[in-house]
Structure formats: C-alpha cells, structure tokens
Design a binder for these strands. Structure first.
Lengths: 339, 339
DNA sequence: ATGTTCGGCTATATCGTTTAAGCATAGGGT
DNA sequence: ACCCTATGCTTAAACGATATAGCCGAACAT
C-alpha cells in the first residue's frame, strides 16, 4: 500500500533483487530499453520485480536530478470566487491529464501577495506559472518574463508584456451585452464597473462604449464605479445614483458586481426589467433564481482553463514553442432581466 | 530575480565565495550556528553573501535529504462547489501561515478517483493529507491509516476509522433546523437528502428524526432522496411528491439540494413560506437573493478549514500528538423562508 | 614538557535518480 | 590469427542540502 512512514523501495532494491545495476533498472522503468539496447528478457524481469516490490519513484530525487517537478503554479485573485473556483477545477483536470499537478494561490488582487505567491511557488520548484495579474504587478511580471520564467497570463493579461495569454474577448462580450440591451429597447444604458486599469475591465468598458457609439448613443455614456473592498455598498450607491440620472438599464461588469447589483435592486425595490434592464457577467445560481432571472455574459470556462494549461505545458515541453495570445468569445444568455 | 532557467545559486557557491565549507553555510543559514559553535563573524559573513547572491535553497534537494516536502494534499469532492471552494481558500491561508503549501484534487465523489488522487499526491511526496471521504472509500482510508499515512478526515469522516477528523456537528445542526421549522408552526416537516451512507448525511437525517420525535411528530417522518447525478430534476420530483403528501415544510440537507430546491419551488410556483416553509444548508448568494430569502444552516468555514490544517500539521511536527476528533457547531440563519 | 579541553571549522557520506562513459563478450569479416 | 562491431551491461559522477565524525590549534592544567 501507499505508505509515507516505512522505508520505500528504491532503484537499488530492485537492482539488487534482479542482479543488475541501478542504471539498467532506471532505463527499463523509463522505457529507454531500446535506446540502451537492453535485452527483452532483462526488461521483463526488471519490470516484474518492480511491480512485485510496488516500486514508486522518489519524486524529490527525480526533481533534483532533472530540474523539473511536473508541477505548475496557478495564481488567481480568489479561489472562493465561484468563477475562479470553476476555472481552477478545469485547470486541475487538464493538468492531470497532461501529467502535471497544480499548486494554487489567491492574490486577493494585491500585487505584494501575488509576488509573494509567485516567489514561493518558484521556490517550490514549479516548472511554470499561470497568473491572473492584478494591478501594479506589471513590472514584476515583466521581470519574470525577462528571467525566462515560463508564464501564461490569464483573464486580465498585460498585453504589452511579451508572454502568452488566455482571456475572454472582453471587448466583444461587452459590446454584445450592451447592444442587446439597446436593441431590447433600453436607450439610457449605464455600466457598473471597477475603477481599475486591468485589461479585462478596460476592454469591457471600451466594448460598452463602442456599442453605445455604434448605436448613436454616445452622449449618454454613464459609467459608475463600484469599490472592490465594499462591493455591496458601493454598487448600491452607484445604482441609486444611476437611477436618478435616468438610466433605464445597466450592464454589470463582473460577477461580484452582478451579485451586488441584484442585492441592490432587491433592496431598492426596483422592478426588473420594467424600471431597469439588466445584464450581468459570468453566471451564478443567484442569477437564475433571482425573481427576474438575470441575463448575463457566460464565459467558456472549460475552454479558458484548458487552453491556458495547454499553452503552458506546450511551452514547457516544446523548446521552440512560440508565444500564443488567445482570446475566446463569451456567450450572451438572455433571461428575463433584459426583455 | 526569481529565475527558472538560469543556474541557481547553491550552497557551494556561497561557501566558495566565503572561503568556508558548505556545511558551515548550511548551519549558518539554518540558524544552527550556536549549536555548532560558529563564530559570530563567520555567520554574519555567510548571511551577507547569501543575501548578495540572492540564495534560494533548492527544495527538491531539501526534500530528498529530509524526506519531507512541506506540502499537504487535500482531496475534496469538487472545488467548484462554493462550499468547498471557500473551505479550500481557508486551508490555503492557514497552511501558508504554517509554512506549508497545498495540493488539491477533486474526487467527484468517486472512490476510484479519490484513491487515484491520494496515490498521486503521496507519490508527489506530500507529508500528509486532508481527505473528505466519499462512499466506498472506507477500506482504502483504513489502509492508509494502517500504513501510517498522516491523514485528517474532513466533513464526512468515517468515525470508526482511527484517524483524526474535523466536521460539522451535523446531528445538532439538523436538529436545530428541524426544530426551528416545527416551532415556527410547521408540523408536517419533510427532509430532502441524498441516499448515501456517509456520516454527514446520516447524522443530518438522524438529527432531523430526533427533532421530529422530540416534538412528538414521529409518525410524520418523510424523507425524500435526491439523486446526486441529477440534483435539479430529482429534487423537483421529490418536492412535488412531498407536497402531495401534505408536507408543509422542508429541510434541505446540502447546499446543492438547497439550490436545486429553490429552482424547483420557483418552477412549481410554490409560495414560500405560506405553502412551504424552507431551511437550507451552507449558504449562498442565491439563498439571500431568492424572492423569499432562504433560512439556512451556516457552516463555520474558517474554523473547519483551519482546524483541519492545524491538526494535520500538528501531527506532522509533533511526534507524540494524539488523534483528535473535532465537531464544530453550525449556526441557524433565519430568513423569510421559514417564518 | 605533556596531556586535556574546547572553540572553530572541514571532509565526506547520504538521500534516490539519471546518464555519460566505458568495459566485456560474442560473432563477423578479412 | 586479427581487428572490428554490436550487444548488453556496469561504473560512477552528478543534482543540492544536511549532518556525522573528526581535524587542527590554542589555551589551560599538571
């Protein structure tokens, strides 16, 4: 059985039992028997003994010798955010399929925490990293890239940094959401966003603006900013202010804002969609179960997570792999809140 | 900077630069200078050079030599389940504070997957494991314990197995929820559970029964079972059947059932709480945002996760630590669905 | 002078793998 | 008879950190 305390079986044990050298055992066990011209019989013999003794290679020794760990690090803002929980789940599965194991860490959107996590993951010996950047971490990521650390940026890449990245096509998604509201008859469409410089947010804002402009509604641009350290309260305030300004529909830029938004319209007893049309982001049971189910932009979680892992692993295993920038389209799910 | 590709600084480099042996450097860096009577000046010198060269110990080498990895494995049913996502987040934080890093894996409630994950985590060299068992995994866990693998069972322990465990006091929680419904005036209280043998579920069922009996409602026991592979549909069926039987309130045994239950009462247009009183489990934004906010048993996530990690680490670091069985009380959050 | 002690340090084996280099034997060609 | 080659295997160095055993010289006691 698997055992952590009693002495483990090593190559040496197998070698002794088989009456051969450890090198031969290593070759046989790693399928390098052809390459090293080992007789078929010896190979069979070795493999059998290895099985009998229930041999499990010592990964620490392997790592030490090879300089690789079969491990990747993933840094996200917060694993208790359902969106990232699902992302992580996807990465876990894909990584396992590709023979890797994953370490996770939550940055809480703090550059300092992100940096600490990345350094600790590197010290732990990860072969590469998938990182969802946060504000003020651009310089650090740039350094990582310059130090040849294999990384894939995720969800909110700094696109100027010369690294691979995987993200939603945020511009198009926001454009889609906004256009949908406009075409559903709402003409004073506002947006609730976070006031941060990260690319995903900026592009969602740009997408919203583009849709407004494209429909000749340029002048009515109304963007309110929620505060990430107190989403519930600040979103409520923003919504109240928007309503006063005569906004008749809102596009929520993230899932946290969407949930906060639902709390707010519920508390402020705003009738959806008659008094206010709504489109949210990311999806949640709360969206569907809200009295008036919330329309939203659905991110292709599987695709996003698997693509990120695949690109990283490709990078690790294929020396002449090139930088890949992947944008994946979101889908608009139309529910009762916007029609 | 942190770097994965260029050569790393080793003890040897420091030793050479300082004109001493690697042993001395190792001692100095690990604070064993007193123990090995190294002159203060030498220590200072070594530490300074280490800092200058930005020395980071090679963890693989450390692991190989020490047989420890500073790593713990966590196996849960599904990290994309918000309850476990939060749990995992808690464990991540506590483990980091105690100097450990965490590997996660999702079993999807399959014993075979759980076994595979555990074995792969052990091969990766984790020092110990926190495991949320699933059905049919008792024998395997028993073997782990017998093989001296340090484990802490979590959330739904096999209590007969001689290992530490951390879980909610499920009996009391279910008793609390059921009593609350009864005392709120509902007298034909049913329960929707999963038909599984795991301890958390059995104890929730027992707690429900105990509350019913205690209030002289023994005869009315009505337990319906949802199917975990199709929670939405089966829960809807169960609820419809219960309604026909004249049940006037329901206690949902898990968060997945609770969410499915809300979908069901919404689709079946059942008025909450007038036609049906409800109490759910675990909490979710959907609970609060539902037209009639759902009362629920709230699990003390922080406590549960930190306790589990602490017990495991204690086990790893203190040779004469004993088995600990921890039950933590849940809290009843009363909302509109039960009054 | 000789032995003892002790402060300060070094040499080296070890953990379990991988792998470059090389050894020994058998068979083939000349 | 000789060299050459292919085959099948071994030896031993490395990866980087840790820790045991022990060396050297100075200070002290006798």
């Amino acid at each position: 059985m698997a055992d952590l305390k009693t002495k483990k079986v090593s190559l040496k044990d197998i070698a002794q039992r088989a009456g051969v050298s450890t090198a031969l055992v290593s070759f046989a066990l790693n399928g390098k028997d052809k390459e090293h011209r080992i007789s078929e019989e010896t190979v069979r013999h070795i493999l059998q003994i290895a099985k009998e003794l229930n041999y499990k290679p010592n990964i620490a020794a392997k790592n030490l010798r090879s300089g690789k760990s079969g491990t990747i690090g993933v840094v996200i803002p917060d694993i208790s955010n359902p969106f990232f929980a699902q992302i992580v789940r996807g990465m876990e599965d894909v990584a396992a399929r590709l023979g890797y194991t994953v370490f996770f860490g939550s940055s809480d959107e703090y550059a300092s925490k992100l940096q600490g996590l990345v350094e600790s993951l590197i010290n732990r010996g990860v072969d590469g990293l998938i990182i969802a950047p946060c504000e003020h971490s651009e310089e650090f990521l740039q350094q990582l890239v310059e130090s040849n650390v294999p990384i894939v940026q995720f969800d909110r890449p700094y696109k100027e940094i010369e690294s691979s990245y995987v993200a939603l096509n945020n511009h198009r998604a926001a454009y889609l959401a906004t256009s949908h509201l406009i075409e559903a008859g709402f003409h004073r469409v506002g947006m609730v966003a976070y006031d941060i410089s990260l690319s995903h947010m900026q592009e969602r804002i740009e997408g919203y603006k583009a849709a407004m402009e494209h429909h000749g509604l340029k002048s009515e641009i109304t963007i309110g900013y929620a505060k990430s350290d107190n989403v519930r309260k600040s979103t409520a305030k923003v919504i109240a202010r928007m309503k006063e300004k005569g906004v008749d529909a809102l596009f929520f830029a993230t899932n946290t804002i969407s949930v906060a938004g639902l709390y707010a319209v519920s508390e402020q007893k705003i009738a959806i969609p008659h008094e206010l049309g709504l489109v949210g982001f990311d999806g949640s049971d709360a969206f569907e179960l809200y009295a008036t189910s919330l329309s939203y932009i659905k991110q292709p979680i599987e695709k996003l997570s698997s693509k990120a892992v695949e690109i990283l692993v490709n990078m690790l295993e294929d020396d002449n792999s090139t930088i890949q920038s992947v944008l994946i389209d979101g889908e608009l799910i139309v529910n009762a809140s916007s029609s």
